[in-house]
Amino acid sequence: MTDIARMQSASIVPPAPRIERVPLILFGALAIAPFLAALSGAEGYVLSLLCRVMIFGLAALSLDLILGYGALVSFGHAAFLGIGGYAVGILASHGMEDALVQIPVALAASGLFAAITGTISLRTKGVYFIMITLAFGQMLFFLATSLAAYGGDDGLTLPSRSLLAGTTILKNDRVFYGFCFICLLGVYVLAREIVSSRFGRVLRGAKENPTRMEAIGFHPFRFQLLAYVISGMMAGLAGVLLANQAEFISPSFMTWQRSGELIFMVVLGGLGSLHGAIVGAAAFLLLEEFLPEILHLASFMLSSDLQSRLVENWKMVFGPVLILIVLFVRGGIMGLVPGGRHD
């Protein structure tokens, strides 16, 4: 190497990434929330709502891994929520109630389903990929409705939350909250590692220009497949948590509408930042939860008849609000936050 080259290679290592504000605030808020919830007088309600936020945040984050970094629009991602949920329900109804058994089974089943369906669907592109993932999702949905032994259409109420290493500590809402928090944080850190790794770089490259990647010797398919499997397993974990949070499983876990909502959460939060997906899930669920109240307050000047009708039909407002955010805020909610994006 020449002297000039050596000089330049000294500066080619990018500066150490600064601590990012958004994820820090996000996880900080989730960490202190249970303490505030205890003071709120409605601890159970707040914890359960925030658990849902974290669980769907986890599912949306898993989707962002392939959607935001691989441009793979999976319209069947709720299937993995279902697989995770049914792993809990089916195992529990056969007496295997420990999460330490249920989680590995759920991950294995999700991974297997992803490997099989991914091998087929990743051979297609664009709209065809969307359609074929949707079709696989629907296939699993109908399979679940036909599982008469496990509740069929109606679903199955779990006898209780999963055991953890033989103990019943997950029955405590605070402990369960902590468990969800650790799962979300762990998966987030893992996903961050993955997207900046050698593997992740190939995935991102294939998203930008697959032909270029092939011309230097990469076969995008294999990388996309592995990403799809990892993503499916992460969503499967979210399914395990969701079943425990609801203490109930049913085919409704994996409707195509649910898959659509997951895509929406990711786009709403901002594609391709991982924490954006969590923020998107939070915004989605909190809006869904509080929009009726917000509408009630905002429409105080209307007659009480109009007011109550508006509140009753809050979904008519919910849809347009979401669409407006996506249309007018490029990069989703993360696009509003300075430094919210890191790519």
Partner: peptide, 20 residues
């Protein structure tokens, strides 16, 4: 990325590739 392509091990899930 082209250097990485011939280096073989592109299935590494850990370690920041941009800093290698």
């Amino acid at each position: 990325l082209a250097v990485q392509a011939r280096s073989g091990s592109s299935y590494r899930l850990f370690g920041n590739a941009a800093r290698e």
